[in-house]
Amino acid sequence: MTLALFIEQLLNGIQFGVMLFLMAAGLTLVFGVMGLINLAHGSLYMIGAFLCATVALATGSFWLGLVASLAGAAAAGAIVEIVVIRRLYDRDHLDQVLATFALILIFSEGTRWVFGSFPLYLDIPAALQGAVSLPGGAQYPLYRLSIIVVGVLIAFGLYLLISRTRLGMRIRAGESDREMIGALGVDIRTLYTVVFALGAALAGLAGALVGAIQSVQVGMGEPVLILAFVVIVIGGIGSIKGALIGAILVGVVDTLGRILLPNFFELFMGPSQATSVGSALASMAIYILMAIILAVKPQGLFAAGSQ
């Protein structure tokens, strides 16, 4: 493999990681502040993609679709929080897992009911079509570079939000001491709704951005949900920094594993067997990574606060 190809693959890994980060950021925020495991986060991602595709089809504008996905997912998040989620904060993780598992069933089948059984069409905007040349001669899709930029901006935005704003102060207070913040006179119910809606909006945005280069279909949120959980567990649940680093770690390990492992096994065995063993191992690679990290650091890389 040439160096240029290796760098391109590394970039692919980072880009995949950034996509995972968009998804994981909301998940880890909601867990950090409210202590809630939300399996239905993938459903919000799906809703974002479906809204974006529908609005883009109706208006012809991807950007309007993007706005719709942000607003729609945030609204869906707020409604779900008020109707269901807020009853789960004082429950144990078990009830949370089951309730949000039920929400997945409702959202998936509800989406299919409304939008039908066939995948929807969503294309990237004209301004971001095409590929740009990288130093070294490789071509790289402009849209993927844009996703990296958006991901970095959001990571930076979240950092500013949490460290510099009043809302962020309350979020930090909520993370460290949930009773205390109520006693200080902060309207904790509203705060939780806002945080949940924020997390949902991030998931919706991720769904719309990723939907444009993948398939907008029912059930699209589930594989990425599991990956996002792997990410936040590796990074340390509740930590935005951990989510970013965990996401990039997972993205790079997964991408390079897919490329390098079959080649690696070819050193010892025949090509077809090497492909088969290498591919099998590659699909397990991130779970192995997670097991190793948790075996060494049971709280993840950047454990935040108590949990």
Partner: peptide, 21 residues
Amino acid sequence: DELYTKLGQTDYAAEIAQIRA
């Protein structure tokens, strides 16, 4: 080249780079 991807995989950037190369 003969490549087996993960079932349910949704991102093919790495495979496409290999195809190009």
